[in-house]
Design a protein around this nucleic acid. Structure first.
Lengths: 237, 237
DNA sequence: TTGGTTGTTTGACTTAAGTCAAAGGGATAA
DNA sequence: TTATCCCTTTGACTTAAGTCAAACAACCAA
């Protein structure tokens, strides 16, 4: 059954049955509840992870406790691969740390740990995995670039509007969709959303209210309806 | 002579003479003066670059003209490789754009253009380049992570102090160094430094003055002396 | 149903940092 | 030399967003 999960992970999609089972032999499945820490950025590095079920946040914390979320990792996606390849092939192998903290955001979040040492051998022997790995890194670089652009060049209102649009576009659209489908459902708390958008709780709340008062969206709990798509795009731009 | 430059570029360091000369056959050298645009983020993608001499800034601009610098590229480093590997191997090859703008910051900045198509073939045939490419991406991801952490969790004063420390640590230290060596020299304008630190001109100027008044640094033109290293570290933390 | 925990909203206030405007300073070219 | 340009600094002011505190709402477990 783990092979069925691994098959759906992009970097492993080219492996055959035999290779998948070999990989299976070295992985380790772990389960967490909401709020559980998967790793801290102070811990020595053991390997990278795949989210099998649930949701994982990758985040940093400042000295005075403010939190910023860098990534939200949905099922079949990987996280914490970066330390695998720093100084790859160089003689000394320093003790690496995880680059950020990771926490489960839902109960029954399951992750798969791929130990670094064994995986490195696999990458060196399989150029297809290698290229998929690069492609994955490229996508993540693009994402971080975009994230920085948003944080530095746009205010909270623009970022919030942009987030809603992105979520809406990522949503699978049913064939015969109605207008009522111009809604998104948050799968994280507004606290976490604020931390992801580089702001805080209260400011996000006020921003939602403002967009609502302007007749652009309608917010009710975790549901957000897009009332005026054109205006929303205009605000986000 | 171009082979001598390419040899010093990390991803090509494993190539032999023959391979280097082959590579040479497909590259294109370009020269720019201070302020010249190398590419805009609206242009179709042709390939990635290596800085041979001078300095290049990679930056984004907001609608109202504010600028943020993502990277400063010194000689023998690469930039704009990300689009090379997005959707790598997938059948359709969309028209990619450059992920940000690039501008020469010094007169007589020379860059080498490596065309995408030919380079892709090289990567697929050479797993060593492939692994070095990953390693390079990993370092850049680490850098962007750090950048975001700074921008979201620290104020301008902390970021400025952190920048000075990083520059100081990157500086080659002479064997018999004196105390007078606890200085760094900016190789960019304070305008650009502000854009790199996610702030503006005026705020950076005031921040320098504050750190100077507190007896932590001494600023004179492009020179910055570290007067009280312990305090500086404390501020940056 | 109650109580408690956690997440969310609102109000009043503070503050870091941006904006606008003007004046210096330094380098270069005519 | 003067003039011009660009970079930098300084002052006065504005503002977006953070802080603190309290009330409110939702959810779950006992």
């Amino acid at each position: 059954m783990i092979t069925n999960v691994l098959k759906k992970v992009h970097i492993f999609s080219g492996l055959n049955k035999e290779e998948l089972e070999k990989l299976c032999g070295i992985v380790k499945v772990k389960a967490y509840n909401k709020g559980d820490i998967i790793f801290f950025d102070t811990e020595p590095y053991f390997g990278f992870y795949i989210t099998e079920a649930g949701l994982v946040k990758i985040y940093k914390i400042s000295k005075d406790g403010r939190e910023h979320i860098l990534h939200l990792i949905a099922p079949y996606n990987t996280f914490a691969e970066v330390p695998l390849f720093e100084n790859f092939g160089e003689e000394y192998e320093d003790v690496y740390r995880y680059p950020a903290n990771a926490m489960a955001l839902e109960d029954e979040t399951r992750v798969i740990l791929i130990p670094a040492r064994q995986f490195r051998l696999l990458v060196e022997s399989d150029s297809k995995i290698c290229i998929k790995m690069i492609s994955g890194f490229a996508k993540r670089l693009r994402h971080l670039n975009h994230h920085i652009e948003e944080l530095t060049l746009k205010d909270v209102t623009k970022r919030t509007a942009g987030f809603i649009l992105t979520e809406y576009n990522n949503k699978k659209k049913p064939k015969n969709r109605k207008e009522s489908d111009s809604a998104i459902e948050l799968n994280i708390s507004k606290n976490d959303l604020a931390a992801y958008l580089g702001t805080i709780n209260e400011t996000l709340s006020r921003t939602f209210k403002k967009l609502q008062d302007e007749g652009i969206i309608e917010v009710e709990g975790k549901m957000i309806w897009i009332v005026d798509m054109d205006k929303l795009k205009e605000v986000a731009a």
